[in-house]
Design a protein around this nucleic acid. Structure first.
Lengths: 247, 247
DNA sequence: CTACGAAGGATTGTCAACAATCAACCATGT
DNA sequence: ACATGGTTGATTGTTGACAATCCTTCGTAG
């Protein structure tokens, strides 16, 4: 039973349009606040307004666009508060997933090999050269690891939060350029090893440390001066109850 | 500035249809596995297929219906595993929200009065008489309290999980008939008091105890015999690391 | 009897035209 | 100058019809 016999994606027109729009938003072709006019998009994609309309609505739960009654859709404008909140969710639900992963013996999970492959990808110099590629590979690995928990709902929420992170990072112009890639990998290995050794406390601990580190990196690199105001946000204290940016 | 000047709901046709479908699913008119045929629904609601189609898609992220490509939508069929997972999310994110609520001084929150009113509603004999009404009032109170955290994303996720709970409870035929309503209120008061006294540890502790209790109630009342298999689920141990059904 | 293949009906996917709504603009009066 | 009221162009909301797809049933061959 090879993985070549996958479930056949075969997306609908609306899905295809939604994916195009996603790409356009994420690569900067569409900027926050830009209007999404159904008629214009339909003309561009050479389809009718129906699928375009449906595609736009598909992006709403993803947090990519905001819908205003009778006034069309615009590309969402995330703030740094959103970043903090998403990372808080990620820390919280991720801990849950990892604790569960340990219980179900994730190391014996059929897809655990794939997780290790994704981790190796982070060592690829070609990947490391591109900051965006690196971020995607990183999030992909994290999601794969968390998915070994076998909790479909929580996994999908974590996947969504990863997409949120990717979106925010691009939109806010945050450089996800870790100063030391081997450090990132070391933190990931710490999590994986804890899962392998069936030590839930160590796994969640390592995971939370990783999130704190990542948020700390963001905090240091965030170019906007408003960051001072944002960082008086109480949630920040929860994410930073260790020294900022340290492990 | 009265609350009478609210933001004007004035929902679109699709929203109205979606709400009707939601009600129909939740009150049992539509049962899990039932097909949602666009043409038929359009005829019933006296609208065209467009809004109906849109309404159906609105219910997908809510987890109420499942969409199969080119084969229409059916009402979702949740399992007890889903219940456990949703409660795990609720415990985890709820703790986060409460900790944050304490930091932002929820007791001074402008809407904290509304929370107390919702709590009082649980003492209303008329509400207590109807198990479904009681559950709705209970979840409404919980969400209002958690919303004082001022975290919009996490709050909306918790709202969604509350709707999930309501859906699952009805679908699985779980009786949400607490043997002792004063006990429920006492647990809630414990959470509220901890928030009032700005004690994050006590607040999250009380919250988690409440969730554990609720899951324990479910476990005892769940009529299906498959519960034994489900409760070997590792996640259960996390939700039950106290004595089952006790505080 | 089973496997394969071809109608047929039912249902979703897509489309282009019509109706309703909105923001902007201009005019008018105070 | 400011506020009010009407007009207009642009855009979304809605509709019914057409095309594509799927499931069922029936028929046929092995």
């Amino acid at each position: 039973m090879s993985a070549a016999f996958s479930p056949l994606p075969e997306a609908s027109t609306a899905d295809l349009v939604a994916q195009r729009l996603r790409d356009a938003i994420l690569d900067g072709s569409l900027r926050p606040g830009d209007r999404l006019v159904e008629h214009d998009l339909a003309a561009r994609f050479q389809v009718s307004r129906g699928p375009v309309r449906e595609a736009i609505r598909l992006l709403v739960p993803d947090g990519l666009v905001v819908l205003r009654r009778n006034r069309g859709a615009i590309v969402a404008s995330p703030t740094f508060d959103d970043v903090l909140e998403v990372y808080a969710v990620r820390m919280s639900l991720g801990s849950l997933a990892l604790a569960q992963a340990v219980y179900v013996d994730a190391a014996a999970h059929p897809e655990f090999g794939g997780v290790l492959i994704l981790l190796q990808r982070l060592s690829d110099p070609e990947v490391q050269a591109d900051a965006l590629l690196m971020m995607e590979a990183d999030l992909l690995f994290q999601d794969a690891l968390l998915a070994t928990s076998g909790l479909p709902r929580i996994t999908s929420m974590l996947d969504q939060s990863a997409r949120d992170v990717a979106f925010f990072v691009r939109m806010l112009g945050i450089t996800y350029d870790s100063s030391d890639h081997t450090d990132l990998i070391r933190r990931h290995e710490r999590v994986i090893n804890a899962v392998r050794e069936c030590d839930p406390e160590a796994a969640t601990e390592a995971w939370q440390a990783h999130i704190r580190h990542t948020v700390g990196e963001f905090a240091r690199r965030y170019p906007d001066a408003d960051i001072k105001g944002v960082f008086s946000h109480p949630l920040t204290e929860q994410l930073f109850d260790g020294p900022i940016g340290e492990d």
